[in-house]
Amino acid sequence: MLLALPLGRREAEPEVPGRPDDATGARQVVRRFLRHRLAVLGLVILAALAVLALFGRQIAPHDPNAIIADVTTDAPSPGHPLGLDPVGRDNLSRLIDATRISLSVGVGSVAIYVTIGVILGAIAGYFGGWVDMVIMRLADVVLSFPTLMLILVVTAVVGPSFWNVILVLGLLGWPPVARLVRGEFLTLREREFTQAARALGARDSRIIFRHILPNASGPILVAATFGTAQAILVEAALSFLGLGVQPPQASWGNMLIAAQSLTVLEEKPWMWLPPGLMIFISVLAINFVGDGLRDALDPRLRR
């Protein structure tokens, strides 16, 4: 396997056999994942949510931001199965429209912080020394805040909006990923295949991205999956507190603001129960997938 490494050639590299993502390894992972029944269920739910997110505008029966004037009650009715919200907009359409918002925040912020975390963690773990020291102390500083407090302050300061929520979650979420990647790099950089690559004269960046990172991709993928679930929860909480996605744009979190009134909470459960359940179901589904991925990618962890 080592002799097959096409070192020295920079472009047009053939796939290296024996890497963890080669065909047989991948097939094994898929098989183990499919055996995890809850994970498959989670994946099916996620697929349905993705359809809602992508085609929400076409699926929604009404304009999510339009005020319905021709109905006398805000209770569920044939035309509006989930009733209307306190402003008089169709709840079902808002619920569908909010799917896109929540999933985008989850995926977007995690994509940002996984990128940052992988780069910083790789640098810290690969080079060690004072670079490692500085990066990890910085991670400690960010981790010493209760994350939610920090996110609250920063979103309030930069102004709450959909993009700012993604940015703030993305820029503050990297320390756990950096720690994880650093740990993987610390062990992987001493392994024979890394030494072999180095002996053959590979550049640092090449060793980091072509040799070590693919071997650390499993735990990173699992962390990213659980992170997406977490980000959706945080976005919902921020929007519920009025510091996240702002109305009129619907988000599951800000749809629950209505329930802060005890009369709505007691007498109009159709206004707050569906968005709450949507958050719960989607986060649960992602966590199921994360569990399945973890078991499939690292059978040693299986209990």
């Binding site: 679930a229 929860l233 919902a236 709450g276 649960l284």
Partner: peptide, 10 residues
Amino acid sequence: LAGNSIPTFF
């Protein structure tokens, strides 16, 4: 899993 997935405010 459920405790980890349910939003605190909900």
